[in-house]
């Protein structure tokens, strides 16, 4: 299935890819899935930074073992600190941003508040070599219309002290996502793109939903995803 879509996988040559958006937009799933995709298709070392300092549960650090087994480097607090109710910003994060090689995916915390930690580091970023992508989910109350999306994007840009370079359409209802939700999200992202002039860099959705859809109507690259942030009653298939 993934092969059928592979010609349309997202492509960017930028070294730093910051995945930014509202709470529940799907930043962590996209970061993890994008890291896996890049690690499988590129020779360069792929690192993922868990920069979510505001959410206490469901963060990319929870799948550190799985990612490291795939050769992906995870930069996140370890051990007891991983669960601490403290905004821990590791010194390695700045080091990784300053490097000149390897792919770097940043999984940023939600909303403008969650982006603050990232904003404290953005002056170290080479502005010719980054993507800051806004993840849009039309099923979240604050981002179900273009105006709502643009409002939150403006707040995030101020907080990040960096400009967006593109959009990701990721409308979802976790396990209740269906074709209609994906299409609704695609249409929303197109409208936000028209209003802001930002390109739709890719659309992402669960691979089982995509495989049952006619994706030829979607005029953008597609990232099929497998969920990794599972609830305790959902067992890995």
């Amino acid at each position: 299935m993934a092969d059928a879509l592979s010609v349309r996988y997202p492509s960017t040559s930028k070294r730093i890819i910051a995945i930014v958006g509202g709470f529940g937009s799907g930043k962590t799933e996209i970061s993890v899935n994008l890291a896996k995709y890049l690690a499988a298709t590129e020779k360069s070392i792929v690192s993922i930074i868990d920069l979510d300092l505001v959410n206490p549960y469901f963060r990319s650090r929870e799948v550190v073992d799985e990612l490291e087994a795939l050769g992906i480097k995870m930069i996140a607090p370890r051990g007891g600190q991983s669960y601490a109710d403290l905004p821990i910003l590791l010194p390695e994060v700045k080091g990784a941003l300053e490097q000149r090689d390897g792919r770097l995916i940043l999984d940023i915390g939600g909303d403008a508040q969650g982006t603050k930690a990232f904003g404290s580091l953005t002056d170290t970023i080479d502005i010719s070599d980054y993507e800051m992508l806004m993840v849009l989910n039309s099923r979240r109350p604050q981002t179900d219309n273009p105006d709502g999306c643009i409002k939150i994007m403006e707040r995030i840009e101020l907080s990040a002290r960096l400009k967006f370079t593109g959009l990701i359409a990721n409308s979802h209802m976790i396990d209740e996502t269906d074709e209609a939700v994906v299409i609704e999200g695609y249409n929303l992202a197109r409208k936000v793109g028209e209003a802001t002039g930002l390109p739709l860099v890719f659309l992402s959705a669960k691979s089982d939903v995509l495989s049952g859809m006619d994706t030829s109507l979607l005029e953008c690259p597609i990232l099929p995803m497998t969920r990794s942030m599972l609830k305790p009653w959902e067992e890995k298939k």
Partner: peptide
């Protein structure tokens, strides 16, 4: 109203 995706804490507030 279409179903929305909400964090439990937000939904408790809205309820």
């Amino acid at each position: 109203m279409a179903k929305k995706l909400m964090k439990g804490n937000e939904a408790i507030g809205e309820a």
